[in-house]
């Protein structure tokens, strides 16, 4: 509850008025002391969340992401061959591999954009092919090349997302404020997305995921790419926090420092095949020649080049 209260304290007057309207606080007086309004709203919110904050109670299915026997062919190219993978709540799994290994293809199948040639994908216990809506409801996907509708304003986009995922308006307002602050998008809420820089676009998409209530099942394709050092640092911290709160996260990357910094387990892919999986320690055991994650990667994907 305290976190909700502190969000309210950070709001500016427009945001406070918007929230007051949503809470049906009567704003009859023409002028009202800010402090008073904040207190009134906090009181109302206390009433609204009387039975606890709803998103703190949700749990994910024990196998948040389960991919079994996944094969995807494009004509004769096999982009992914017989992939098995599971991510449990409270885990960050890194999908690493050289260019063209099949990481993006895997994540696109996981997000329900394309169908697998063979195999099944389950998200939060729902098969993507059989119950696509239920499977997609929990999933947050960041594409490899972030794009968004240029003719929407950032705020309009975020509200749209909240509607589609059926986030109650009051929850959405609070969450939006929290994550807009975190990703420093405050000045850009009324900007058209078409005018944003690449990093700010990436941030907008991320906030678009986090206006939805946790826990999340995230499929992130190179999420760090394009963010500045502070944005990257914030995101890494956030991902760890979400994991500790029970989200399940699958990130694809070929930036190994990032992978090493945040991932609990790794899946190493090469030309569609899984060539190694496990924690860093397990991988080190499997590859006696290698001493760092970089060397493991090189060893498993074509050998360490001689200096």
């Amino acid at each position: 509850m305290n976190s909700v209260k502190s969000i309210v304290e950070r709001m500016d007057s427009d945001e406070l008025i918007r929230l007051a309207r949503q809470l049906n606080v009567s704003l009859t007086e023409r002028k009202m002391k800010r402090g008073l309004l904040v207190e009134t709203i906090q009181g109302e919110l206390e009433e609204y969340y009387r039975e606890g904050i709803p998103w703190k109670k949700t749990r994910l299915s024990d196998l948040a992401i389960q991919i079994s026997g996944l094969t995807k062919k494009f004509g004769k190219t096999v982009a992914v061959r017989g992939l098995n993978l599971a991510v449990r709540p409270g885990q960050i799994v890194g999908l690493v591999g050289p260019n063209g290994a099949g990481k993006t293809t895997t994540l696109r199948i996981l997000a329900g954009i394309i169908r697998p040639t063979e195999g099944t994908v389950q998200v939060n216990g729902f098969d993507m092919n059989v119950h696509p809506l239920k499977a997609k409801q929990r999933l947050g996907y960041i594409p490899e090349r972030p794009t968004c509708y240029p003719n929407l304003k950032v705020r309009e986009y975020l509200t749209f997302i909240a509607k589609i995922y059926r986030v109650p308006p009051i929850d959405a307002t609070l969450r939006m404020k929290e994550y807009v602050d975190l990703f420093q998008l405050n000045g850009l809420l009324n900007a058209y997305i078409g005018t944003l820089s690449k990093g700010n676009l990436q941030r907008t998409l991320l906030v678009g995921i986090f206006v939805r209530p946790p826990p999340y099942i995230l499929a992130l394709d190179e999420p760090i790419y394009g963010l500045d050092p502070r944005g990257a640092w914030n995101l890494k911290l956030l991902l760890k926090k979400l994991r500790d709160e029970g989200s399940a996260i699958l990130v694809s990357t070929h930036i190994l420092e990032v992978a090493e910094g945040i991932c609990d387990r790794f899946i190493i892919m090469n030309e569609g095949d899984v060539v190694g999986k496990g924690t860093l320690e397990e991988l080190l055991e499997q590859t006696p020649n290698a001493h760092t994650i970089e060397e493991i990667f090189l060893e498993l994907t074509g050998g360490i080049p001689d200096a």
């Binding site: 997000a111 329900g112 954009i113 696509p132 809506l133 239920k134 997609k136 409801q137 999933l139 996907y141 594409p143 090349r145 972030p146 794009t147 968004c148 509708y149 589609i164 995922y165």
Partner: peptide
């Protein structure tokens, strides 16, 4: 469009 692919297709909509 490509944007539809990234935004709409992963959404819980038919």
């Amino acid at each position: 469009t490509e944007t539809d692919e990234y935004i709409m297709m992963p959404m819980p909509a038919r």
